[in-house]
Each structure stands twice: as structure tokens, then as C-alpha cells.
Amino acid sequence: MEKIIEIKNVYKNFDQLEVLKGIDLDIYSGEVVAIIGSSGSGKSTLLRCLNLLEEPTSGEILFNGVNINDPKVNIDKIREEIGMVFQSFNLFENMNVLENCMIAQTKVLKRDKEEAKEKALHFLEQVGMSDFIHSDTRSLSGGQKQRVAIARALCMDPKIMLFDEPTSALDPEIVGEVLDVMKRLAADGMTMVVVTHEMGFAEEVSTKVVFMDDGKILEASTPQELFNNPKMPRTKEFLKRYL
């Protein structure tokens, strides 16, 4: 299995505040990594460092062996291969659903319109949004928006998908439809890193669960191990409140 991402001794400070205090993690192709932890533990910051939305203060993040923090590296090219799904969806509001999925393909990957449209329709169907291709993004519900966001990221044919608390802003009733899409994605073999509070999803779907606390990775193991036999006391405390 190839290593897609290597995180080596990454520190991240926001002015005086130390958010990441030495993270080491390897992510292999085909893995579904769930990152859990309480608020402020640095989960989202770590995820955002992976596609350089946040720049690590020190340490290295290697994507396919290339240090993404190197100034000589073209980060836009690397971001083409990393898909990201945000907690607040962030669909482009000046375009409809289909255009949202096509814009990056035509302007970044330089695919021609027909090819981009085909791909967009394919992934929109996969997430169950075929009926809404000409809809304005503002008329969609939260779950629908998130599914479009997932389709939009998939249209770039990324090697890895990052999910930043994808269901935290959704009604409990709608959470299911987004998790179903993510489960199917995982079953299809997509490498995924998911920051989530959905312990059920973490247990069912992920291949590795990483528990973060206060800027450090406290424990990382298979879901069965971590949920049934948590080793660190802090992990036990956290899981007690969630399960």
C-alpha cells in the first residue's frame, strides 16, 4: 500500500496559541481515517494543514513524497488531487449545482465542457442529486448542499478526500443521507480523512481512528481497538461522554 500522506512532527501556532504540538501520522491509500476529539484539540487545524489551507509553523507534510510546505512546490497542482468537504458546504453561490461541479474541471483541469458535464452528471447521480442539476444552490437543504459539495470535490478525481466535520451543521434527520454517500465512497476504495463527531460512522466505516487531545495524537488504532479497549485515560473519559 502506498503512503499518500506523511505528517512529520508538525507544529502549528496561531500567534501565541499552540494548536498542534508535534503530530506524526501516516495515511495509506485506501484507508478511511477518522479523527475524533473534543473541540479545540486541533482536529480541524490538522485537516486543513493537509491541503495547506493552514500553513504548519514547523514540520513536514509529504503528499506522495513531496513536501507541500516547500515554497517551490505549486500548491494549486497538489490541491487538484486533494478533495475537501467543509462543515459549512461552501458551494459557489453565483452558480447553479451543475456549474459548481464543472467550474473547477474546466478552469483548472482544462477539460472540455462536454467531458466536464458528463463527469459532473455522473457524480451528481452518485450522490443522488440528479434532479437538482439546474437548481440554485440557495434553494437546497443542508444535506443536499453537502452532497453537491462532495460531488464537486469528486469531479476533480482526487486521490484523497478530506472531510471537515461534514455533518456537524446538519439536522439529525439529514445526517444519514450524507453519511450514506460517504460510506459508499469508502466502500469504493477512496482514501478518506474525516474529522467527525459521528462515533457511529467512525466505528462502522473507518479503518483507523485517531484520537486527538490538546494538539497531540493521544491514541491511534483500529476502531474495534479504540472504542472497545481505549488505552489512555483521557480517551476513556472522552468516549464515556459520547457513547
Binding site: 494549486d76 490541491r79 487538484e80 478533495g83 461552501n90
Partner: peptide
């Protein structure tokens, strides 16, 4: 988030 989403899709 609009800019972040655009950049994360690889848009300069």
C-alpha cells in the same frame, strides 16, 4: 469559505 473552497479545488 468561498475562497477556501475555490482554492481547495486547485484554483489559483
Amino acid at each position: 469559505g468561498q475562497m477556501e473552497a475555490a482554492r481547495s479545488l486547485g484554483m489559483p
